[in-house]
Amino acid sequence: MLSYAIRRLAVAVVLAFGVATVCFALVWFAPGDERSDLLLSGRGAVVDTGPEPGLVEAYGDWVGSLLRGDLGTSERSGNVARWLLARLPHTLALSVSGLVLAVVFGVGVGVLQAARAGTVLDRLLTLGTVVAYSAPAFWVGILLGGAFIHKPMELGMEPLFPLTGVAPPGGATSLLDYIPYLVLPALTLGIVLGAGIARYTRAAMLEALAQDYVRSARARGLSEMRVLFRHGLRTALLPLISLLGVYLPVLLTGAVFVETVFSRTGIGLAMMEAILGQDLQVLMGGALMFGFAAVVGNLIADLLYGWADPRIGDAVRG
């Protein structure tokens, strides 16, 4: 397992490097002046001394500063790395809580559907998950905002949750202060992502429940709960771990829209503003962060999978 982890880690490093290189190439080879703006002037001194450096030199330079954690400076936002890092916790909080909600919703609904396959309940839930699965995140966000914020306000009541932002206007005094601001955005992500997980879980559970070992588990007199959760769900969920790795980019792009809808000052909103304000430094910094997050997420998913499924552990060891 350890040697697998080390090998997998090496792959992740290579992947991260690849992500960075692609980001660089996209800007370097893009038509227009952006490349000098972004890759040269951001480095300060380079532009003033001597002629414009070539591709190799610029790339080396850029990777060097990237390794030092320097994402350059932008006119609007100042030090890009610092600007983005300050927003990172809000995006992390949103993504993680959205993911947790999605897994809870998705797995719960999927298991319920499989246990009641073919019933009216199953069909209604299928309809619901298909709709939620095809719905764009911002649309779900707007609907939820309408239901829990605007509707109560129209009716002359206090909105159930704060409309926008990440913390009370005066600043948060404790971590709890952040939570009301997190509820609807996290719910939005949870619903959109959870619908996909529910559809996957239902199918995987139905397949698992048809396995011989589930019949054997019943033959041993185990309770239906044990059969469903310990024997059915366990094997059905193993592939979900790696599916979550694949979902990570979806989660992050979801975060961009959700942050925009709820005006949460996270990385997604920063990127959206950067696009509108043509702030390439921030956009590229955000893209790099999302790219790295996807690499790390997949790394974690693969390691978890190897740890959770003894067959994979053996296959990669042997």
């Binding site: 588990a217 310990r230 094997t235 003894p310 067959r311």
Partner: peptide, 12 residues
Amino acid sequence: FQDPTHALNPAL
């Protein structure tokens, strides 16, 4: 059962 390969839960 007949088939011991599938009678045991592979994940446990």
